[in-house]
Write a protein that binds this DNA or RNA. Structure first.
Lengths: 298, 298
DNA sequence: AATAAGCTGAAATAAAAATTCATGCGAAGT
DNA sequence: ACTTCGCATGAATTTTTATTTCAGCTTATT
């Protein structure tokens, strides 16, 4: 937590970086340990670029500056987490199933790790504050992201928070058009490029609501640019990635972390509320309350 | 000296340090995390000493300079951040957030591992055969499990398979009442005790449909008993487990594995179908097809 | 062909780190 | 009691490092 995840960011931003910056990023990914002893000038020289390019790279991956980069890379190394394996899962009938499933597992776990490592405690706190104080919490995502939103809604309801969501664009537009600065709008879209989501996020922004988004890290990600507080999701999957749900799972995990922090802040009453809602649900269970079934899941 | 053990060095050198340096060392030992954002001047000011003193301290503990100090401290912190924590996630305001999140991560990953490790290849194959041959695939889950079902549906649709699902019990009852031995009924319920799900699963079973369930492993699990082919989900979470989505994520992962295997069996046409559906979705993207955005996610 | 958009590194500026050095203080020697 | 020495200290300076600016250049766009 706290300071970290820069290697993730480097590799996920790599494709959209300008040449000079990409060259530097690649070098760092290959020789992260050596970075510690280099100055901006050294690094520029080694990678055959300029000091300006190094600084631009720092901005691109959104760290505070060259020192910030160094410090983050060191933290990443110290945590020693560099996963192995190929970047993408591919559909290939010749791959034996068991090894496909192994990759599936590895990729999913990698996504979870990176997503959680990249979340800043201060961001989580800010988010929690806003969630608690919001007059309305409005969440929007369509397609696969709708699943994430739905889960979010269910969990906030359990805590008694005023959250609203629907996949219906028109209904949502009506709602978003009425948002004020006392409300939160949360957009979910891994690509950050879904037209409907962008449109409503823009509207929410214009209305002055606090805008938060769950999306992939990319400097050019248009959705992230609209956010007061973006939360970045890391996922690894096949190009035509049927089956794999890495981005979905990473998103759910990020939400979990948020909700967990939220529940922490009003632990006493949270316990009570949860008991209430669970009791309500339990009456639809077949077995008795004495069952050893873990609560809260259906 | 590489990167390491500087906090130790600081405390062991402390007794022999000059006053001004000792004051700085003590401050660092007390607030190591804050050091990251400070310059020499800042630190000198905070500790009421001078820049020269800070530099002297660096020399005293034999690091290369102020940047070296910073980097080493960060590495130390990062290393200490190793996950800790108990078997269960609890809502407890006293647990520091970062360690809660470490547990969250560990628990989630544990669930994924166990779930995937427990899946038998022969079961997956059988499942895939049935999915391909089914006249209708009907999936049912409510509450949190509805999220899983919805994801399943979206993915099967992309492959052009005839899947139907709704959370509405009555509609679902109407459908299930018409199932035949040529259909698949898939029930999702982590507890295996949800009344609605059990009732419809019973009905599907009676109608002779092939019944498969996603549920937790338990000898007495009533849902599992009704299944022709049960798939077991493993999850680890706190008792009142707001926030954590371990069972949800494990379920999604199991589904992923199934779908992945399924897509593998008709790789050629799967590729084509996927391209078609992705093209359809892409027209709602803001950017052009040349975008580097990974496909298939919204 | 004209224009815009955006990379790029050289050079200038700003900021930070490291050194130098005059000062002061206390202990040891006379 | 007074000098001398050793060394701790921070103000001021120098050196190094990071960051910004900008003009030229490439590459798409119309």
């Amino acid at each position: 937590m706290a300071i970290s995840g820069v290697l993730n960011r480097l590799s996920s931003t790599l494709p959209t970086l300008a040449n000079s910056e990409a060259r530097i990023a690649r070098w760092i990914l290959e020789n992260p340990r050596q970075l510690v002893d280099l100055t901006v000038k050294d690094l520029a020289h080694i990678t055959g670029s300029s000091q300006a390019a190094v600084i631009r790279l720092c901005k691109s991956i959104q760290v505070s500056g060259y020192q910030g980069l160094k410090v983050s890379v060191v933290a990443d190394i110290a945590r020693e987490e560099r996963p192995t394996g190929s970047r993408f899962l591919e559909i290939d009938p010749n791959t034996p199933l068991s090894s496909s499933i192994q990759s599936l597992k590895r990729h999913t776990i990698m996504g979870i790790n990176r997503t959680l490592n990249d979340m800043r405690e201060s961001d989580i706190d800010r988010m929690v504050q806003h969630l608690k104080q919001a007059r309305w919490i409005v969440a929007y995502g369509i397609g696969a992201s709708a699943v994430v939103v739905k889960d979010f809604q269910q969990k906030l309801w359990r805590l008694g928070l005023p959250v609203f969501c629907t996949e219906d664009f028109h209904i949502m537009a009506t709602i978003v058009g009425q948002l004020t600065k006392d409300d939160i709008f949360m957009a979910v879209s891994y690509s950050g490029e879904t037209a409907e989501v962008l449109e409503l996020t823009q509207l929410a922004h214009k209305r002055g609501a606090f805008v938060t988004v769950l999306t992939r890290f990319d400097r050019k990600n248009p959705l992230a640019r609209l956010a007061d507080l973006p939360i970045y999701i890391y996922a690894y999957e096949a190009s035509p990635r049927i089956g794999a749900s890495s981005s979905l799972i990473s998103s759910l995990t990020a939400m979990s972390a948020l909700l967990f922090a939220l529940a922490n802040t009003f632990a006493e009453s949270a316990q009570a509320k949860l008991s209430d809602t669970l009791d309500a649900v339990r009456s639809h269970r077949v077995t008795l309350p004495s069952s050893d079934t873990p609560d809260g899941e259906i």
